[in-house]
């Protein structure tokens, strides 16, 4: 795939749709295109996070290690971004992302990602929106789980 095709793909990612094509081309050039086979980990929970990944094609499971074993907490698909929490908060990976079908991803290193955010406030807002959505989703699930828990003992 060529750089210019990649730019077309990136423009379809909601996160990047506000960014001018010239800048997207730069981003595509500065980032690594990688593939990940089905069943292989894109990254593992507890690892040190050095990059975020934009999924260009394929799907992946988000898995969290718990006392009861691995729990699948979400599925991510084309055009979504994963791994941004670890580089925003400088923490270890909070979950494992494993390809459930062959993945094509764009690996954006930590420095590049942070640089992009400061260059394009629109993108920062978009990231905030993604994170807020996730928080909303998590809160709903937590509420559900709590109410379920309260119902059981009574």
């Amino acid at each position: 795939m060529l750089l210019k095709d990649e730019v077309d793909m990136l423009r379809r990612v909601p996160l990047f749709c506000q960014i001018a094509p010239a800048k997207l081309k730069l981003l595509a050039f500065a980032s690594e295109r990688m593939t990940c086979r089905e069943g292989q980990n894109l990254f593992r929970q507890g690892d040190i996070g050095d990059a975020a990944y934009v999924i260009l094609s394929g799907t992946a499971d988000v898995l969290v290690q718990s006392e009861a074993g691995e729990i699948r907490v979400a599925e991510v698909e084309k055009n979504s971004i994963v791994g941004e929490i670890a580089i925003l908060c400088d923490t270890a990976r909070t979950a494992t992302v494993r390809a459930s079908s062959r993945l094509e991803v764009l690996k954006i290193s930590k420095e590049n990602f942070l640089e992009l955010m400061s260059d394009f406030p629109d993108m920062a807002v978009e990231i905030m929106r993604v994170l807020a959505n996730r928080l909303n989703h998590t809160t709903n699930e937590l509420t559900e789980a709590r109410s379920h828990q309260q119902r059981v003992p009574s």
């Binding site: 010239a22 081309k25 730069l26 981003l27 050039f29 500065a30 980032s31 290193s109 420095e111 590049n112 640089e115």
Partner: peptide, 16 residues
């Protein structure tokens, strides 16, 4: 030149 012309020289993109 087209890609990098406008970037400051210390920009992390230059690593690539």
């Amino acid at each position: 030149v087209e890609l990098f012309r406008d970037l400051p020289p210390d920009h992390p993109f230059f690593q690539q």
